[in-house]
Each structure stands twice: as structure tokens, then as C-alpha cells.
Design a protein around this nucleic acid. Sequence first.
DNA 1: TGACTTTTGTTCGTATATCGCACAACGTGT
DNA 2: ACACGTTGTGCGATATACGAACAAAAGTCA
Lengths: 251, 251
Amino acid sequence: MRETDFISGFAKGLSVIEAFDAGNSRLSITDVSRITGLERATARRCLLTLSELGYADYDGKFFTLSPRILRLGHSYLSSTPLPRLVQPFLDQLSEKTGESASASVLDGNEIVYIARASHKRVMSINLNPGSRLPAYCSSMGRVLLAAMPEDEAQRILENSNRTANTLTTKTAIADLLDELQRVRAQGYAVIDQELEIGLCSIAIPVRNMRGTTVAAINVGTQAVRVTIDEMIERYLPIMQSTRDTITSLLV
Amino acid sequence: MRETDFISGFAKGLSVIEAFDAGNSRLSITDVSRITGLERATARRCLLTLSELGYADYDGKFFTLSPRILRLGHSYLSSTPLPRLVQPFLDQLSEKTGESASASVLDGNEIVYIARASHKRVMSINLNPGSRLPAYCSSMGRVLLAAMPEDEAQRILENSNRTANTLTTKTAIADLLDELQRVRAQGYAVIDQELEIGLCSIAIPVRNMRGTTVAAINVGTQAVRVTIDEMIERYLPIMQSTRDTITSLLV
DNA sequence: TGACTTTTGTTCGTATATCGCACAACGTGT
DNA sequence: ACACGTTGTGCGATATACGAACAAAAGTCA
């Protein structure tokens, strides 16, 4: 790609949108300039553009994102076939297991939920399509990392901020690589309260007909309700049969 | 705003993202140029920029959005206090009523879901935060339209593509304005299979302490399970009490 | 309160990057 | 080989970004 094929104004604008997050809902021009590293004048122009287009609101002092921004993320969910394809199967899976079922793909160090059938709230945080979790300590993350070349997976693990969320969280690269090896061999990943105390989940890869892993699906539950072994015994076969149906629909 | 405070390259880039939707997941440069009305050279630069930043993938012929795009919409959901604030109350509401509960705001002619506790699939389409429905034929849409000045609501109704989804769908402006009047008077809106056959819902406005309507919440169910009157009798009081709690938390 | 400092927002001229057009190159199917 | 549709490129005209200077608030302290 040539230098001139890159629209830096567009890139800067996108970085301004991403400047808004959990702790930053109301931002002044200076705030945005600090967060993004853009010149104040440039940040201001990006913000005014967003506001002019209805993607942001401006009260003369602070900017906030407006719900119109959701169109952008929704472009992905509605245009990509996979989320729409897997949703009904997740509904079935959730129905049959009596637990929450989800599908996700990898984006950098994180898994991104692309569809979900939530049965009952089991986690402290709420998960929806678009939600993100670190890959290294989630069952679907392990499955997706296991599906890629080992050196690439290792690079991602090294770039991850590997926090020990609980006492059982694996954080050492060597341990995680071992675990990936195991996941590859057995064809599924199990997380036993590594992300949050009381939370267990099991995930398997979804491959297309060519054998490329395109997503992961999982079933999550509360540790008190079922043991890991029961989870493998009861849920894994149902998940695999669901997965096979999905695969048969993927080119 | 001055002419020079508007970054047209940014605006064009955003329109390129929105070009991707349900029927358009894999787009060539020419496709995007046709859909957006941009010059081919410009569309190409926008797409290459998206791809360079990891927001899109390019196979040399077609562009597809990548899950990274979801960060943009998620900026809104995670940064805006309202969605995070209402979620636990929707969970409670869903628990108490045994039905799905949602919250939404208005964006143009459409309502946008900002949070949802889905109990069991009742609709043919799947709803998530970010999902959109036409305002004129949804219970939350009616409530939100009723909360605004009548002439503005009328303008929105006139700009809406008012399709008769079912035999009971109100589509005439006069009927809809009458209905808004009723909603204003009684403080809630009821939809009896106007959006989809077999689907009923009831919605009420959520106001902040200053009395401004900031969102709507609803409970939706299958028509066979409960009559409209039962819905009003059983769900409305619970919804109102939930709403009052939410209001007390809003500045 | 009032003078001073610090921070924030806005404006402006200029260097530079982007736009849109016209043309070239490529690929595909007849 | 030809016509057609699509993608890539060079160039002049134009719009944008930068940095600094200016204006306006917002603190700060006696």
C-alpha cells in the first residue's frame, strides 16, 4: 500500500471514537487530545465532525458518544454471516444444557463475543455480542489460540497482560503453552475458575469445511452446579454435535 | 461550526463502514463506491485504511469487516452510564416477570437497544444491545415518541417507512398520533402484535430526576401466554417500581 | 476581591496530504 | 483478440493538519 492510500484523518477519527470507554464517557477536547495523542486542534475537528454527523453529542464543553455509534459495530454483526448463522444453534445448545452458550472469535489478545444465548446471569459482568475477554484465561480463547501456529500464539500470550484473576489462573507462558498443547490434543478447553471465582466453562473450536478454525463455542456454568468431569461428560457431546451441524453449513 | 472544522475524509470513512450490512458482507471497491456514492479512488483509500488499521480484511478482491469494528460500538455501551446502570434492573425485571426485559433509546426513526435481559426467544429475530427496530410499531418507540414535542414526533413518523408488518399494525399518521396521545395520558404503551404476529409488549418511559425522558424499558411476551389486560395488571406495577428505582439513580 | 498563573478552547497562515478526474493496466468471459 | 468491467496510478486543484499565537475561562493565592 502506498503512503497516499492511507487517510490519516480517518484513522485519527477512529482513534477518537475508541478514546471513549468505561472510565471516559464525557470527554473534553483536551481529554481526547491527551488520550489519543492528537493535537488539540485535530482532536477538536474530529469531535466536531462526529457531532455534526450525529455520532456524538456536544454540550459546549463535553462530548459524549450517541447511540448512532452502535451502527458501526452493528455493521459487523449484521453483515458477517457467522454471527447470524450460529445464533439459533446457541439457543438450542443453551436450551439443551440449561446453561449459557456463546460464540466468539479472536481479535488480538482478546476474544470477542459474536453471539450468545444467555440462560441466567452467572458472571459478575454482563456479556453481549461485542463484549471482550482476555484470550489467555477464557475457554474459547484457549481453543482459538490452540488453533493457530504455536509461535504466533506464544507472541499473543507474551503481549497479553496476564493477570491472576483468581488463585487458579495460569499466567506463566510455559504453563499456558502446555495447556494449549493439551487443548489441541483433546479437542476442547476447560476453564475452572481462572477468570472469575465460581465460574467454569468448556469450549470447542468451530471449523469450516476446509478445516480452518473460524470461531469457538462454549458453555459456561457455575462451579457449584456441576463438576468439570460432569461438564465434559454431559455438555461436550451436545456441543460437538451442534458444532458439526454448524460446520456442515460453512463453506 | 466552520467549514474547515469538518473532516470529510473521516465522514466518508464512516459511511464506508456503514455500507456493510445484512446483504453486503463482502464488498469490492466498486461496490462500496456504488453504495456510498463516493469516488472509487476515495472508497479504495477508505477501505485500504480500514484494512491497514485492522478494522477490515482484504483478500485482494473483496473487503470484509473484522471483529475489531465492534470496538467502536462497544465504546458507546461501555462508556455511557445508562446501559450499565439499567442492566441489573432488567435482569431483576426479567426474573420477576418471567419474560424478556429491555431498555432502548431513540436514534432517528429507530429505537436502539442499549441493554437487554432475554428470557426465552420469543421473536423471530434476535435482539441485542445495538439492535434496531422501527419506532412507530414498537412499544418503546411509542413511549419515546410520546415523550417528545408532537411536531417532532410527527416529523419522525412521516420520515418512517411505515410498513404493515401484521394486520394490526398502525400505519396512518393520524392513528399513530392518536396513539401517542393515549400513551402520554396513560403513561405506558402496549403493542399487540403490530411488529410480529404472536408478539406483545408493554413499555414505560424512564426519566431522570429533572423529568427528562432518557430511555424506555419494556417487557415482551408471546400473545398466547398472557392477554393485554393481564400484562398491564401483572407487569406494569413491577415495571413502574423498577423504573422509579432507576430514576432515583439518575442525575 | 483582584491580580496572576494555568489550563482550555479557538483562530490563522502555511506546508502538506487528500480529492477527483482522466488514463493506464489488468482480468475475464465471449 | 476484443469488449467490458474492475482496479491501480499520476497529477493539478483543493482541503486538511500542524504549530503557534491568541482569547477565554478557571483556578490560585494574597
